[in-house]
Structures are given as structure tokens and as C-alpha cells.
Design a protein around this nucleic acid. Structure first.
Lengths: 124, 124
DNA sequence: AGTAAATTACGCACCTTTTTGTTACCACGA
DNA sequence: TCGTGGTAACAAAAAGGTGCGTAATTTACT
């Protein structure tokens, strides 16, 4: 009575992990403790608004630990919590699954290389 | 050189699984073969446009197999591919992880029950 | 020595882009 | 006329980007 039977926890997880940034941020934080601008440098395409928002989301979810130091210009450090560290191999497994699928995907449909772009833009 | 080292496959997976519907649809399809309106009945809040779009996305990703029968009113069946079935336990693991985290989350922050709502609406 | 500028980690307001929903419409057969 | 499995057009909502402000301190320039 656990395996994908209660779909609710999965919905909650996806609410946290959905989007480009959560898994990426977990990836970078898994390398070690980082500061706000470290993460911005790690990922130059994220805006500071998004970074702040996603970090707060991950913090609330218990995945990221935020530590504030009252030094010169104010310093904040971000790190994975134990729960966040336990999450890493699960995300990892998804990546492995995708690579395995991707490897032999061509046999079904013919093309699987252009999956990346799902442009739904219809207002052009 | 595989474990969360190459972040790209994870980005691709999240591009497919992000959002409310993909994991939910996988959940319902894991119960067995379904037809379009079966899935609509399973999940009344999804619009048919979204359902069609998400199903096509999952189909392109090699997770869902679409079979069209030329019977009287036209009949289409959706089912998980082998790759889709292999994905199920991974999604499952995320749900289990969340439940485990949720169980002892109170020790860190005090409240972890109201994580669900991340209203970012600022234009009210 | 005095002034200007940069750093740090954001919050806020405005605007654009993307996503999602609503509605109508299609062909077909019972 | 209803249900089947959609597509296309339009509308609303959400997500995301940009730039400004903050406050203390250090560095850079003159």
C-alpha cells in the first residue's frame, strides 16, 4: 500500500522539484556549501529573483539549510540538509533512467533526439 | 562519472516530468491500459487540451504508448511502455522519500505541513 | 584624506513570456 | 444527439526577467 498507490506525496514532491532550477540547485549544493552569488555564478542564467525564490522553496521543503552570518556585508550560506542529501541519489536514478531510455529510444518512433523542444506557442 | 555529475539528463527528465500532470498520468496508466476519456474521468480537473498535450509529450518521451484502433467510433488506448514501467519505481521512491522526510520534518523548522502553497502572485 | 564604487543577499514593482484553461468545432456511427 | 478523440482560436493565469533600493564595509581612485 505504498508503491504509487497513494499519489499524493508524489504530487507534493513534484510541486517542489518541478521546473528547471530545483534539481540544478540540488546538484550544485551537493558539491558543498555555497553562497548566494556562488550559485548565481554556477548558473549564470538564473535571475536573482528566481534563485531567491527557489532557495526559499527548497528551504521550506527541508532540502536546503540556510545559515545567516552577520559579518561585514552580510553572508548567507546554503547547504543540503540530510534529507536533501538522501534525495540526491533518487534524482540521480532518474537521470540514469533517462540515459538508459534515451540510448535505445530510436527503435520505437524513429526520432528521439528532438524531444527537448516542446514549443506550444500558438500565438505567433 | 555518472552520479549527478552530468546534470544534463536530469534536466531533460525534469522537463518531461515537471508539472502536475505527468506523474499523475503515469500513476493512472500504471493501473493498466486506459483510453482518453478514461483518463479524463480519472482526473476530472485536467482540461482535455492539457491531457492531449501531456499524453503526446509522454508519448514522445517514450514513456507512453499510444495505440489507435479503427473501430466504429475510433478508439485510442494509452499504456506505459517498458521504459515507462521502469520509471514507476523511481517516482515511487521520491514519494517514499517525501513521506519519510515529512514524518520528521518538524524537528528542523517547526512547521512543514503548509508547504503546499507557494503563491508567488504579486500582481493582485 | 575624501569621494566613489563595489560587494552581499536579497525585497519590491513593473513588464514580458510561457503555460494552462475555456470554448467551440470536427467527423463518425449508433 | 450523444460519445469518441481530438484540433484550433482565444483568454486568463502563472512564471520569469529587469532594474532599483538597502545598509555596512571595504577597496579604488584622485
Amino acid at each position: 500500500m505504498r508503491n504509487l498507490v497513494s499519489c499524493c506525496p508524489i504530487e507534493e514532491v513534484m510541486q517542489i522539484l518541478s521546473g528547471r532550477w530545483p534539481t540544478l540547485l540540488i546538484y550544485y549544493l551537493q558539491q558543498g556549501t555555497k553562497r548566494f552569488n556562488d550559485l548565481r555564478r554556477d548558473n549564470p542564467t538564473i535571475s536573482h529573483k528566481m534563485l531567491a525564490f527557489e532557495l526559499r522553496k527548497l528551504e521550506h521543503a527541508g532540502i536546503v539549510l540556510r545559515t545567516e552570518f552577520e559579518s561585514y556585508p552580510l553572508r548567507v550560506e546554503y547547504a543540503l540538509t540530510p534529507a536533501g542529501k538522501r534525495l540526491v541519489p533518487l534524482i540521480d536514478a532518474l537521470g540514469d533512467w533517462w540515459e538508459a531510455t534515451d540510448g535505445n529510444a530510436g527503435e520505437q518512433d524513429g526520432n528521439a533526439a528532438d524531444i527537448v523542444d516542446f514549443g506550444q506557442s500558438e500565438h505567433v
